[in-house]
Write a protein that binds this DNA or RNA. Sequence first.
DNA 1: TCATAAAATGACCGGTCGGTCATGTTGATG
DNA 2: CATCAACATGACCGACCGGTCATTTTATGA
Lengths: 210, 210
Amino acid sequence: MTPAAPADAAIADAARPLRADAARNREALLTAAEEEFAARGLDASIADIARRAGVAKGTVFRHFATKEALATAIAARHAEELTALARRLRAAPDPEAALLEFLTEAAGRLQRRRVAVLMTVPAPGSELARLQRQVHDEVVLLVDKARDAGAVRPDITGTDVFLLMCAPVHTVDYLADPPPELWRRYVGVLFDGLRPGSAHPLPHPAPSWP
Amino acid sequence: MTPAAPADAAIADAARPLRADAARNREALLTAAEEEFAARGLDASIADIARRAGVAKGTVFRHFATKEALATAIAARHAEELTALARRLRAAPDPEAALLEFLTEAAGRLQRRRVAVLMTVPAPGSELARLQRQVHDEVVLLVDKARDAGAVRPDITGTDVFLLMCAPVHTVDYLADPPPELWRRYVGVLFDGLRPGSAHPLPHPAPSWP
DNA sequence: TCATAAAATGACCGGTCGGTCATGTTGATG
DNA sequence: CATCAACATGACCGACCGGTCATTTTATGA
């Protein structure tokens, strides 16, 4: 039939391998975009991203159909990393330490790369939505294990933790020049809030996902 | 000398009272801008705000020298409300209940009006910076009282609480269609994290303000 | 009622940005 | 080396946006 339509390079999944220079540029664009988004938020301009990557503006749109697609690609990469991290930690012997390490490592990534902005609500049914769900489900398992071990209060769900994940990072954002490790302090506060013990009943039922 | 320079209306503090229509428009602009910022973030356009307020674009700039000044005016209004709230609660008999009510009421406002975006780091020395400091100082007093009463762990400062204030609201933002009262749940988690009892030592010294 | 300063208006400007496309360049393949 | 599809380029387009200003409207107070 159709001889493998060239289609859009942006939609070229793993169809045909990229040319060497194209692969290089794609990678350069991803890291440049990540840095630019981190520095200036979603308003970073395509032109600046292209300049930082050392390519022309048109090249950006050869690799990513739209600016949103570029942001999504970055978010997807981080979602995959978080899924892998959670899966790895799920095999750890101490469930409490595992959950704490997950929260710490996740917040640390989000802080360093400043990608919390990109983790907005994705279009339903989109690829990013699927990847977010993967992270979510993995966090649920992690939290379930921790709860079984008595490290997490019984009325806290995995979805709660998933939503609370970015809180320590956002907290620090209200400071003009935050100490680079201050977020760890608020991971501590959060973790203590998740613990059983002095916990008071929570005033609202847990949310569902999505 | 200069016969009371007409100057810019934007800088007209309480110099001379506004004309009736001007006062009306100013108020309409503030509420329209608040709604528009809430719906579309800082990127809401002046044209849309003007349309919603039922005035022409030029009128916006008669009242507020710049778009940023408009956003600042809204943020300032909320800062003043929060200061008043904290001051009032400081006189309450039960310091623990007072702090909880402050966190609840503050988060509720931020959630309803979606003004957390406007509470960004202000220019040093600016009016908004002064108002933020007022809120901060008032929160410190509230937290000190609560700590003295044993309702807050000893290693938590007022600055911590000030920074954590918006966390429950941000947490809910990662949900596509959050239950309108879900933020209360995360106020609960936060408050339990602030309590003494099962608290573990925090991994980073408290920040200073600013 | 009238004079006047205050206020409102909306066309306009310079600039930016996301995205397109005709053209030129280059890496793979035989 | 020759060929060609894949890729890169950057001028260009239309839309939008914040802000200005000459002109017109209007509230106010005498």
